[in-house]
Design a protein around this nucleic acid. Structure first.
Lengths: 210, 210
DNA sequence: CGCTAATCTAGAACAAGTTACAGAACCGAT
DNA sequence: ATCGGTTCTGTAACTTGTTCTAGATTAGCG
């Protein structure tokens, strides 16, 4: 909840610095995870295979990521950071904040369509995560919030009302993604849902009288 | 999507009728499932234990419910039907459709607070379900939709805009529930989110000019 | 009743996530 | 370079969801 003191991200509480080899291992693991997820989705990410593919012993894999869910949530963190960087390069073209957010989310959504299996693995892990993964899930949530706030392109700090709207948009985004991934909603339906929820933003202009 | 031809529910396509003993078995299984879920949540629902507690062989359990997820989603169906009946008895007191929906959902939410472990098991199963469970998840979704539409208390059929709003409300409801269950949001926060999203309903009055 | 097919039971077997452990490799400080 | 503690490896074991099999029970039917 640290407003926006975003010099560098808060860098999780006291993670002892990793040696170069360790950093490399971590990266190999995440890469293997994304690769296996990319074809085959959640079920294809098998811990033994991830370990083998990243040239790491099973025990080591578990030292770095204490569960499959942790691993996949970390993978999502990784991918989201890429996406955030990519989206920053081409900001939305619409003028209304709501439309900008919708446009950005649909871009993100199209990126997921390109790797549906990967998206499946990450999103399923995210929603299946229990309390033991809360900190990591929270990080993902903050990243998503940052992407949305970026898209809104507001000059001053967001109002509480706007933050509520952003939260609801995030809820809708995740849930709509799930219904699409499990084949219960079409792409068009997701688009409609996102556009619908983004109307909430128009209701919360900075100078809106109560 | 059958508007509201709700004489009796469509009664899933061609389920061969069960004998009395079979119906009883099914009921015992669902009861055991809810009981185990009630204390211990998702992890406490172990197929062997469910089988034992309901006096049924493991193979039989799997004949009735082809996976743990199927079982828990069916459990949710069951619980939702109870809830729907309960909610019907005491319709919301507010006058605005949006406020009525918010009130109803908060009532449902309080019911979940009474059995957080059970809620955890059911919601986790619901969001983790893959394509093979789509029909059952869809049934749950229709039940939820019915509850919301009931709460709106509209005279005529819902407009497409209203149906979109209901979809988004459902998304928010599920996702907010998850964040609460995994300890990342307070009850107050859930309330705010629900109230926020329910404003969408006010935007979609039946006679709203474009 | 007696037959046949479907269902149910008990239990073994298999799959993948997770844990445990003994020894090898590595890192930092002396 | 060497010592001491940490980390990594390789592997086996354990847990729980799921599948399989052989035999007992049941349901429907002539």
């Amino acid at each position: 909840m640290g407003h926006m003191t975003s010099e560098h991200r808060p860098a999780l509480p006291a993670t002892p610095p990793l040696t170069e080899r360790q950093e490399a291992r971590r990266r190999r693991i995440l890469h293997a995870s994304a690769q296996l997820a990319g074809r085959g989705g959640f079920d294809a990410v098998q811990m033994r295979e991830v370990a083998e593919l990243s040239n790491v012993a099973l025990g080591t894999l578990y030292r770095y990521f204490p569960s499959k869910i942790h691993l996949l949530v970390a993978t999502m963190q990784d991918q989201l950071q890429h996406m955030h960087a990519t989206l920053r390069k081409r900001p939305p073209t619409e003028s209304d904040p709501g439309a900008r957010v919708a446009q950005t989310l649909m871009r993100a959504f199209r990126a997921m369509q390109r790797e549906p299996h990967l998206a499946d693995a990450m999103v399923r892990a995210l929603t299946f995560a229990d309390r033991s993964v809360s900190p990591e899930v929270d990080t993902v949530s903050r990243l998503t919030t940052a992407i949305i706030l970026d898209a809104m392109g507001l000059e001053s700090a967001a109002t509480p009302e706007q933050l509520s709207a952003v939260r609801v948009i995030e809820h809708t985004w995740h849930s709509a993604l799930i219904t699409w991934l499990s084949g219960r909603a079409s792409i068009a339906q997701v688009k409609i849902d996102i556009e619908t929820v983004c109307r909430l933003i128009e209701l919360t202009g900075p100078q809106r009288p109560e």
